[in-house]
Computed example of a mutant assay.
Amino acid sequence: MKIISILAFLFLASCAGYQFRYQNNPFASYGVKSVAIPNFLNKSLISNASTPMTENISSVLSQNTTLKIHSGNSESADATLIGIVTSSDRRNDFYQTTGTTLIDSTAGRRAFYSPNQTSFSLTLTIILIKKPTKVDLSLLNKDFLPFIDKHPKVVFSKSISLSSSYSRYLSTASGSDSTNSTQNREILNKAVEALAVSAGNTFREEVLNAF
């Protein structure tokens, strides 16, 4: 009976500890009780890459803190979370072929190698800035961004490097180019969604847990 009581006590204590951590506001000492999260800026070569990033980071804040979250811009929020997704500007540098498949010759076309595995890299920069003005936001460019953490209104600045690869859809059927393009776009989107989940985990472990 004593063993059962001890185990029950440890279980309740662990639950209480988890609940305390959930209720914590990591930015309370900075006077931040509410955060506005506008859709992150996408400066990468992948269209809509910022949407899943915004959703996952917002979800991590909602589930792991007691901060009041405002979707989009809000003048009433104590601070604004700015996210910027970037990548190489050159497609040949951004998309790296890591595997190929030999496509047999067909009528009027010689055999050739087609990419079947592609890797890519993104960077997500996240900045929490208190009551930003238009002038403050104008500083979020490539030249000043590496020094943004020196800004007196910035609570934190974190850059997360993200890399992934995906297997490309290949079809040699006649008129399949559009099908290939659609299928590969869907596969790429899934890879970006997985990276967004990874970004959320990194944000929770390396930012929220550090405060």
Rank of each mutant, 00 (worst) to 15 (best):
D177M: 07
I148E: 11
F112R: 06
V85G: 02
T54W: 03
I148T: 13
K131P: 08
H70K: 05
S178A: 09
F94N: 01
S159G: 07
Q183M: 15
A173D: 13
T100F: 09
D78T: 05
D93T: 01
T54Y: 01
S178P: 00
S58G: 08
S176F: 03
F144Q: 14
V60C: 08
I126A: 13
I129N: 11
N116I: 08
I103P: 02
P152M: 10
F147W: 15
L67K: 09
T125N: 11
S87H: 00
V154A: 14
R91Q: 12
G83I: 02
T54I: 05
S165C: 02
L139H: 10
A77P: 06
R91C: 00
E55M: 04
A111I: 06
P152E: 14
V155S: 15
R91G: 04
S119E: 01
L128F: 15
I82S: 02
K130L: 14
L139P: 08
T98E: 05
T182Y: 10
S157I: 09
D143H: 02
A111R: 07
T125H: 11
S87I: 00
S163H: 03
F112D: 07
K142A: 14
F144E: 14
T101W: 07
T118R: 03
D89P: 03
S62A: 13
P115V: 04
S167V: 07
N180W: 05
K153M: 12
Q63P: 05
N180M: 13
T179E: 15
R185V: 10
S165H: 11
N141F: 08
A111H: 07
S71G: 13
D104H: 00
F147V: 13
T98A: 04
T133F: 02
K153S: 14
T106P: 06
A173N: 10
S161E: 12
T54E: 08
T65Y: 01
